[in-house]
């Protein structure tokens, strides 16, 4: 009886950690090999991101932000250390399994949107669901909902070139959302946008965060970081600071939204 109870408790505990930490990295390393030269881009990173958190990753150019995000997004494999995504060790998976993980658990938002020009906004948003093997009607429904949630319900049949930069990035966000991923990863999502459209996109992320999404944003913009509840600073491939921005520096969305 006691053994069984302990097993149940342990199982519940595992479930709890799974639920709690969407992302956990331990001593994560990534070394690029350039000919005979080894470039250590990440030199032992540790952190965990619980479900529902919104995190900014900052740091000077070349500090390893994109490298880290690629690893978190399962586009790349670590040279050392461990990466648990929703409790699963991603390092043990094959390429095709990683593709499935990216499809099911990750939503990517790119600096340059990366929309396919020959497809309409709706079709771009549907794309991840195509690779998930959903039926056409199912896909369409989810994609329409995602587009509506980024405020582009009336632009479904526009092609990317018929949309403004801010609108294109909102389509990009909708595409990341459509598959209901465990985590949304964005590498400088506002980097190509003017400040107004950048604000719009940022507000979108904040809305998603408030609705419960886990979000990791790489940014150079101090202002962006002010909206997130946690900022991880990288320098030369290691974490130099990790924590909330002091609250007096933070400005709530509501203030901004009102102004």
């Amino acid at each position: 009886m006691a053994v069984a109870a302990a097993a149940v408790a342990a199982a519940a505990d595992r479930v709890a950690t799974k639920m709690a930490d969407v992302i956990r990295v331990e001593q994560l390393q990534r070394v690029y090999h350039l000919g005979a030269v080894d470039v250590p881009a990440l030199r032992g990173i540790d952190f965990a991101i619980p479900q529902g958190q919104m995190v900014a990753i900052m740091g000077p150019s070349g500090s390893g932000k994109s490298t880290l995000l690629n690893l978190l997004g399962c586009l790349d494999r670590p040279s050392g250390g461990k990466y648990l995504l929703a409790g699963e060790d991603v390092g043990l998976k094959t390429d095709d399994e990683l593709a499935e993980v990216r499809n099911a658990r990750i939503g990517f938002v790119f600096q340059n949107y990366n929309l396919l020009p020959q497809l309409t906004a709706l079709e771009n948003v549907e794309l991840p669901l195509v690779y998930r093997g959903l039926s056409a009607s199912n896909r369409r429904r989810k994609a329409e909902a995602a587009l509506a949630s980024v405020g582009l319900g009336d632009r479904k049949h526009h092609r990317p070139l018929e949309l403004s930069g801010g609108q294109q990035q909102r389509v990009g966000v909708a595409r990341a959302l459509a598959g209901e991923p465990d985590v949304i990863l964005a590498d400088e999502p506002t980097g190509n946008l003017d400040s107004t459209s950048g604000q719009e996109v940022l507000r979108l992320f904040l809305d998603l965060h408030r609705a419960g999404s886990t979000i990791v944003i790489v940014t150079h913009d101090d202002e962006v970081a002010l909206y997130t509840e946690r900022t991880i600073h990288l320098r030369d491939g290691i974490v130099v600071s990790d924590g909330p921005i002091p609250s007096e520096q933070r400005r709530g969305l509501d203030e901004r939204g009102a102004s």
Binding site: A99, E100, N103, P128, Y131
Partner: peptide, 16 residues
């Protein structure tokens, strides 16, 4: 190339 990269990033397998 970019299109292929994107498709893979959002979950297209090699066979696809």
């Amino acid at each position: 190339t970019r299109e292929i990269g994107l498709r893979k990033a959002i979950g297209a397998k090699r066979s696809a």
